[in-house]
Design a protein around this nucleic acid. Sequence first.
DNA 1: CTTAGGG
DNA 2: CCCTAAG
Length: 646
Amino acid sequence: MGTMVGSVEDYGEMFQDAVDQTSGASLSSSNQIENPVVYKLVRVAQDGRLVPATDEEMLEVKDLVENNENDISVVPDPGQYEYITDEGSPSQFLQLDSLEGSVTITPKHIIRLLNPGFFQLETAEAYTENLNSRLESKEELVYGSQMPFTLLDTNYHSSNELPGDEEFVLSEVLLQEPVCFSSDGCGIDQPMDVSPYSNAAGGSPKAPALSTTASTPGASRDTEEICLGNLSIKALQDTFRATFGRETTCKDKLWLERKIKMGRINPCVIPTTSLTVDDTKLILGGQDSDMVVAFSKDTFDEGRASPDCIKRHPNDFGYSPVEAFVDHYSGNEDFEGEYRSAKRVRKATRRYIEEISKVDDEKQQSKESPIPSKDERSINTVSSGRRVVVTRMVSLGGSIIQVPYVSHVRRSRPRENIMALGEFNSGLWEVKGNPEESDLNLSQSQLNNDVKRVSGVKSVSGPVQKKLVAHCVLDPQMQITTNDQSYKDHSKPKLREVDEDIMEPEYMDSSGDSSDDSTYNRVDRPITQSAMRRKHHRAWSLSEVKNLVEGVSKYGVGKWSVIKKLSYSSFPHRTPVDLKDKWRNLLKACFARAPSNKMGSMRKYGSMAIPSQVLSQVKELSQKKSHVSPARKARMVKASSRHGFL
DNA sequence: CTTAGGG
DNA sequence: CCCTAAG
């Protein structure tokens, strides 16, 4: 069933696990298991790093939230709070119910709310991780327009104007300070070496400035409030420092009071591990995408959350999130196990996956986790509908994560035209995670693609084959049928992938591609990564280059399409654009080393460069630009066609 | 679609 | 080689 959130113990433990696994940071003993995961409001700097929000920023966010009240519906009804109380427990929970809206970090590094309020929170876990690895930070983003954070603290709420006051709730969340679980220099911008109250353990803040305000959680709230109320700004600031271990310049008395009070209360608890979505950032929702995340197990089982999840959640489960939560909190053990087993299921982004795969393969840099780029829209990945994805386990930084399976081998050629990709995608590939099948499909797709490239026709059937077959007939040396060739072309893509600069000294004149293929498997060619490097690089054979030069001389620079048609029919893999690119390179080459003699200089590793003769030819042609009289052009075309090129 | 040019 | 803008 849809379960909402875990208990303090639950997450505290998870948190600890995570920390133990990743950072190995030594946490202080006993109560650590009960340490809840705490969220901290952060902003995202331009370099993508997370920076703890300043007081001012939090105020700003707070204001923004408050100004968005219209978009924020009221929290669960009052009656629900009573379920939350649990003696001896911290009795404070941050419930993340529905998430919606979006947040945008402006260039000014200020968290700004769009739509319904939205902001980002960083977990204490991430906080800790940041200490040990600057590369790693996990961030949770939460917010909801339907149901904002709900701090479920009976004591607190009962003694206040709540419940039902979303302003208050939101404020509490926003004002919530991070808890640092490690004793060492914690904090990114500022030290946070003071642990606020933990949980049932009843940890007390370090070196409280004021004994009265530094009372334990068990202390009377009333008393505390009174005390706080009587304090001066300065005193409040001191108390603040005592509570949170850092200075504040905030002069808002009310704010200080609230914050301090919140610091007394136990940190918010939230199912962070499950929320851990992507990269370091999880940005829910976009201006357009109605993205939401629900804390239902169902949702996480699929490693994603779809808008549907959230929206229908409250109804579908027949009970309110709060109730569900309460159930778990009150010690529903089997939930715990179940929940934990389903943790951290997510769909990684492509780049993420590739990074992981790389690391996995090379078995190195264990500590270095990939830093996802900030422009990565992880949310899109997550929200991309409900699909079945085959996943595999990958170890990263000591913890196991599940990522969709992708072949480590680079998929042959990427799309060469959108159409093919589109068709393909609309098909099965996304749904089937089967690598083999995927590859198969891809090859198929690309095969078609190649044919398209060759003929410029959209379909494999009909004209294309006809044309190519005819071509084969006309060209005695073309022994391979169209399909075979295309197939062959893809059957060993890796072997053909060579650096562009590596020229084939071989005789390529015969019939182009087929011979190219046969001569390509030279044993001496190192199958190193450089060889199979990069996409679909296909070395330009000397014959191809000569062909190109000849073509240019005939039809002029820029007539790539014509050249392709008339001089490159036997090189199906070269497109007019390829010719153009190659020509550009040739120009570059010949002008780069103009004062060269005889042979083109030998490049590294004996890859033969273009003969100077050819280069000079190129140079010459480039200077006289294009311009071939139409008459001659026509003659050439005619002549070519007579020779079977068409 | 073909070219030109940037990436 | 890829992508895209522009004709």
